[in-house]
Amino acid sequence: MNPFANRTLPLAGPAYDIVPVSTHNSNDMPVTAVALYVETGGTLSVVTAKGQTRQVAVADFSILPVGVRRVRTTGTTAGGIHALVLT
Rank of each mutant, 00 (worst) to 15 (best):
M1V: 01
N2D: 10
P3M: 00
A5N: 10
A5S: 08
N6D: 05
N6F: 08
R7I: 02
T8E: 03
T8Q: 11
L9E: 03
L9G: 01
L9F: 00
L11T: 11
L11Q: 05
G13C: 00
G13H: 04
P14W: 04
A15E: 05
Y16C: 05
Y16H: 06
Y16T: 07
Y16M: 07
Y16L: 10
D17P: 02
D17S: 11
I18V: 13
I18N: 03
V19Q: 13
V19Y: 15
P20V: 03
P20H: 01
V21L: 09
S22E: 07
S22D: 09
S22N: 12
T23E: 04
H24P: 06
H24Q: 08
N25C: 04
N27V: 14
N27T: 14
N27F: 11
M29R: 08
M29E: 04
M29A: 05
M29N: 02
P30T: 12
P30M: 10
P30W: 13
P30A: 14
V31E: 09
T32S: 12
A33R: 00
V34R: 13
V34C: 13
V34I: 12
L36V: 04
L36K: 08
Y37Q: 12
V38G: 02
E39C: 08
E39Y: 11
E39T: 12
G41I: 01
G41K: 14
G42K: 01
G42N: 00
T43G: 06
T43V: 11
T43D: 14
L44E: 02
L44V: 02
L44Y: 00
S45W: 07
V46D: 02
V46R: 00
V47K: 10
K50H: 11
K50W: 07
G51Y: 09
G51S: 07
G51F: 11
Q52W: 11
Q52I: 13
T53C: 05
T53W: 07
T53E: 15
R54W: 12
Q55N: 12
V56S: 08
V56P: 09
V58R: 09
A59D: 14
D60K: 12
S62V: 05
I63C: 11
I63F: 14
I63M: 14
L64C: 13
L64S: 09
L64W: 15
P65Y: 08
V66C: 08
V66E: 10
G67F: 15
G67L: 09
G67H: 15
V68Q: 03
V68T: 01
R69W: 10
R70V: 03
R70T: 03
V71Q: 01
V71T: 10
R72P: 12
T73M: 15
T73C: 11
T74W: 03
T74F: 06
T74L: 11
G75D: 01
G75K: 01
G75I: 00
T76N: 09
T77G: 02
T77I: 05
T77F: 00
T77E: 01
A78Q: 08
G79S: 06
G79I: 10
G80E: 04
G80T: 06
G80F: 13
G80I: 03
I81F: 13
H82T: 12
H82E: 14
H82A: 11
A83F: 11
A83G: 04
L84N: 04
V85P: 07
V85L: 09
L86K: 15
